[in-house]
Write a protein that binds this DNA or RNA. Sequence first.
DNA 1: AGCACGCCGACT
DNA 2: GTCGGCGTGCTC
Length: 676
Amino acid sequence: MTHTGLVARVLIDSPLPQLDHLFDYAVPDELAAVALPGVRVKVPFGSSGRVMSGYLIDLVPPDATGSDGEALFHGALSPLESVVSPARVLTGEVWTLARALADRAAGNASDIIRLAVPPRRVRVEKAWLAQAADAADAAGTAAPTCDSAPAVTVPAVTVPAFADYPPGAVAALVADGRRAAVAAVPEPVQLPGGETVGQWALTLAELGVAALAAGRSAILAVPDYRDQDQLQAALEQLAPAGSVRRVDARQSDPDRYRDFLACLDPVPRIIIGNRSAVYAPAHELGLIALWDDGDPLYAEPLSPYVHARDAALVRQQQSGCALVFLGHARSVEVERLVEIGWFDAVAPARSRHPRVIPTELQAGADARGARIPSAAWGAARDALQHGPVLVQVASPGYAPVLACTTCRHSARCTRCQGPLGLASAGATPACRWCGALAAGWHCPLCEGTTYRLVTVGSGRTAEELGRAFPGVRVIVADGDHIVQHVGASPALVIATRGAEPLAPGGYRAVLLLDGERLLARESLRVGEDCLRWWSNAAALAAPGASVMLIGVGGLLARSLSLWQPERYSASELADRRSLRFPPAVRAASVTGTAPAVETALAGLAGIAGVDVLGPVGADRETVRAIVRLPYSAGDEVAIALKAAIVRAATGRRPAKGGGYRPPPTLKVRFDDPELL
DNA sequence: AGCACGCCGACT
DNA sequence: GTCGGCGTGCTC
């Protein structure tokens, strides 16, 4: 068998950390025509020559230094076994992104690629290849790959006006490839087709169309399918037919693969989807835009747990495209980016916003503990004359936390500010991070010395309100009862946060209940989350309608009623700076057997600015430590921890004797939003 | 992960 | 004298 002179650099598709680098193979002559970067390949691997699949990353002369800086293998090369198909599904841009994100998270590139490249569907792929070949013939070229000529012609597109924003402000973001936090207009709008969507959906769609008008592709990401439906409705009005492609897990596998392949066509497209849309291949990427980046659905649950916001930030730096985070609230992460000057802040030109009334600030408040004050009852009663009223309630099922009996603030560790918990009823409270016992705890805010367990169970609101307003239709919208839209006629719409339906023209009043209970959740981010839930619900109100925020005061209530959520975010960020909490610094959890964690932490010893909380026992066999690091130490820490992971995976293995022990090795998770 | 290479106990 | 145990290390 003769070989072309070239070396194929291959990423093996394996979750093993020790295989997370390129392996070099010779290219047999008969594969030369199809063995091009981006194709799926099969390669012989290991002493047994077992066939594994992978991606051909690079094709280089044998005397080259690898484009990734990795030296070529000095030794006899095995030949590629086969090329799975000529479809070049892993573009250079997506590979570079996957590599960078994996490195940043001490994870595996193939784990990122699994999010970026959907499972292959042979039938769909053949159809796409044939269509690409036809297009190539028509254009007089021959290559049946993504290098071929456009298969679709893009209709002329007019540049959107972005009428809600200062002239030129938003259009310039896309044109100049800038990064910006854009405040959405907090109103519902009715599309010409009759459907009601949030104004944000129109703005996002306009951003995509602006990129298209400049001959560039746009990636528009939304957290959930309800948001995606609004965005799609808006795009149907604004975007030329055929220019929009979905990339999301709700599609059937063939549909998903078809749309994915279409993104490889050399034509600009608007690509929409949920968190993994940020990995989509895109021709001439001009814009990535995320709606509501603070939504926890943007946190990837699969290793290496890269948040879509971070993926978008890294991709923006690599490609130089524009990057927009659009939202009502501003996440503390984005606030940091604005404060360090990495992001611009853009607000709507006119400052019309929902009329938020914090009832706690009203004189003559009702007896303490009343769930719904009389002012809110009154507002609801009046509004029900004219149309639907939204009542936002807490969803059931929170972890119990310790809170001060008198001032109700959650109890935190005096050493490291971690949350306190009880190992068992009546036990001394202990910090869940550093393990310190909090004997003799006292509340730093009110000096109270007693705490209680705060648990929340909601759910009777519908009955309660139904009794109070006899004859009014009650609609429940939550995780189990998904309601996208309600009508314009009077109704009480009881919704858990995030599940609020849209009402044509907007709700005539909005009641935000259970604020105090929501705020008792065990998380550093509660305030931020609440502000996001509340502002998103308030944005569903009709212009001028009352939004009653019940039982919540302070900066949170003030930020919402002034509609300046960035005030709260700024104050929150300042607090996190003084406590050395994310996103002021980065954090990584290191979990595993005590010796494995110890060795991993030892590898961080010399790195400036790094400190370690714990380790504390996580369960019977494993311990967990939390590493805090400045952003500047990210590379160094990730490299050290990745080395520790590889060592743990290849070195001493758990005793095989008996065989009843799953591998308790070493796990690292960077930037876990749930960590604090 | 698999699989081979390698160095110590009880077996024909 | 060997057959085979699984600890260790590699896979282009």
